[in-house]
Amino acid sequence: MGQGGEPRRVRAYDGDLGAAVARAQDGDEAAFAAAYRMVQPGLLGYLRGLVGEDAEDVASDAWLEIARDLGRFKGDGAGFRGWTATIARHRALDHLRRQRVRPRAAATLEQDVLDLPGPHSTHEQALESISTRQALELVRALPRDQAEAVLLRVVVGLDGPSVARVLGKRPGAVRTAAYRGLKRLARQLGGPGAADGAVTDDGPRTLGESK
């Protein structure tokens, strides 16, 4: 229902992704690189929400495992997203356990937030980066289960049952967590500008500015 267009948009690429994965499983290096480029942004976004600035390192570890176990994988493009997200999640949890760092540690977040806007120059990119910072901040301020459900659905682009499988929870619980998380995000994002109905106000305003 509140799934929005994002997962569906991602799913539009899943046909290509599935084909690339199948070729990669047959040993096609270029196909593996293509699959990497399709999956990595979502994976990185998810990890950024989990481990902050260490997301790149964790993603690197995850990809080593993905490359190693690719022959074991069975499924299509959407399945590959779920499979890789599961691996990335395990690596992230390992990382957090090793570091004894809370997933929403303030220091890491601050660092991360400060780093992000750097490379952007144009007006549009600046807006983009502000929203990146906001989104990251807000998502990581959510309770863990809500944050993960939101990230897997919105950023990785998994459907409900896949999110549930990655998290090892029942689909109903995951759906509820995602719904609550998104609702809270929307409310908070609207906080500075508008009292409520945040997104409906926020969207057009941003649009008008950037045009």
């Binding site: 690189a33 998502v139 919105v154 950023v155």
Partner: peptide, 29 residues
């Protein structure tokens, strides 16, 4: 309330606006 916002959060966290994946990381993978 979730629709456009959800998409925007996704795009932001994926870094859709920041120019793709790190080529070095891709090379390692």
């Amino acid at each position: 309330p979730d629709t456009g916002f959800e998409a925007r959060v996704g795009a932001a966290l994926r870094g859709d606006g920041s120019g793709g994946v790190d080529p070095e990381a891709e090379r390692r993978a």
